[in-house]
């Protein structure tokens, strides 16, 4: 190859490089426009803000330094270092699969409690008369605060899949935080129509915009059944912190054993409670024993429903705790402790 040919090759390469760079810049600008269009089209541009967005060749969409403005708590400060949509599929314009992850999701539980704007007297009275067992579900936020959790810095991963023909939806969420611990929840919901799926999307949207997400969720779950449920929780201080609070509540003096551990009487109470939902006393006793063991030495606990077991949500009634208990027992859920860190 002559010298002039080499020069021509170099010039061509430079031209390609310049064109390529120019195209990347154009693409990036296009990505920004697309995402902005997506948010504006769904009227979310005022409630979701981000610093940077990117769409990779492999269809990864990443937003960086995202913050959300919740409708109920417009002043709640929060930040997501990066939010990535790993995969997105649609079937007849209905999202059929979404895989996402959020890195370093930060917010303050105290900030949420302050943004609830309850009258001061109610806050004080509720906390002064806080029942350490019943009120965990009635006032979960206060329970977390009493356990000593405040600033959350979590990693979240999630998968959503929906098969319109089969009317089946699967959800899987993994949540990990220094204080709240590691949660891994999976569930399949059956008999979910297209309209109900829409209610689910609406519920998510109504966390950010005006609306009633609880009502949407209720509509979403109407006539639904649950199967393939599993929940794995690994404690990293939440239980210990809550036990410390319970010990102060029951005046545990120095040198005395913890008063928050479950004794035989407490275990018997749990067995009796479970037995109202299902008369299988031996299994109920095993569950209660496992719970007691977990509270005594918090590690990893796993709730796993039996394969192919299905439980209709319409069949459940009573308080939230009773409905939850009924659901788990109808699904033949086993409770087990796992050794070692996940």
């Amino acid at each position: 190859m002559t010298k002039s040919m080499w020069i021509a090759v170099v010039i061509l390469a430079l031209l390609f490089a310049v064109c390529g760079g120019f195209m990347i810049l154009l693409q990036k600008d296009e990505d920004q426009k697309n995402i902005h269009y997506f948010l504006t089209n769904r009227k979310l541009n005022n409630v979701i803000s981000y610093q940077e967005a990117s769409l990779s060749v492999s269809d990864l969409t990443t937003l960086k330094n995202v913050s959300l403005r919740f409708y109920a708590f417009p002043k709640l400060s929060n930040n997501i270092q990066s939010f990535t949509i790993h995969e997105y599929k649609e079937e007849a314009h209905i999202p059929s699969f979404i895989s996402f992850s959020a890195r370093n999701v930060t917010f303050s539980l105290m900030d949420i409690a302050q943004n609830l704007k309850q009258p001061n007297e109610n806050v004080v009275d509720t906390l002064a008369a806080f029942n350490p067992t019943e009120d965990i579900l009635n006032y979960p936020l206060f329970a977390l605060l009493l356990a000593g959790c405040d600033n959350i810095s979590a990693e979240i991963k999630g998968e959503y899949s929906y098969m319109p023909a089969a009317k089946e939806m699967s959800l899987n969420v993994k949540f990990t935080d220094q204080c709240l611990g590691a949660w891994d929840a999976k569930v399949s919901l059956n008999n979910i129509s297209n309209a109900q799926q829409g209610q689910f999307v609406l519920a998510l949207k109504h966390f950010l915009q005006k609306g009633d997400p609880l009502k949407d969720m209720k509509n979403f779950l109407k006539d639904a059944s649950v199967s393939n449920f599993s929940l794995t929780y690994t404690d990293s201080g939440l239980i210990k912190g809550y036990k410390k609070y319970v010990d102060t509540l029951y005046l545990r003096l120095p040198g005395m054993p913890s008063l928050s551990d479950l004794d035989a009487k407490d275990i018997q109470k749990i067995v009796s409670y479970l037995s109202l939902s299902n008369a299988h006393r031996q299994r109920n006793a095993d569950i209660a024993q496992t719970l007691a063991q977990f509270i005594k030495s918090p590690g990893t606990i796993r709730f796993q429903s039996k394969n192919r077991k299905l439980a209709s949500l319409n069949a459940l009634s009573g308080t939230f705790l009773r409905q939850l208990t009924d659901l788990l027992l109808r699904l033949d859920t086993t409770v087990s402790l796992e050794t070692g860190t996940p």
Binding site: Q114, N120, V124, L127, A128, Y245, T248
Partner: peptide, 27 residues
Amino acid sequence: DRIDNLPAMLTAAAIIKKPLRVNLLIN
């Protein structure tokens, strides 16, 4: 009227951002 629980009242004071009158058993 009552003897208060320290963590509960500290949490309440933090939420309402005001000091609270309390009675505490303390060593």
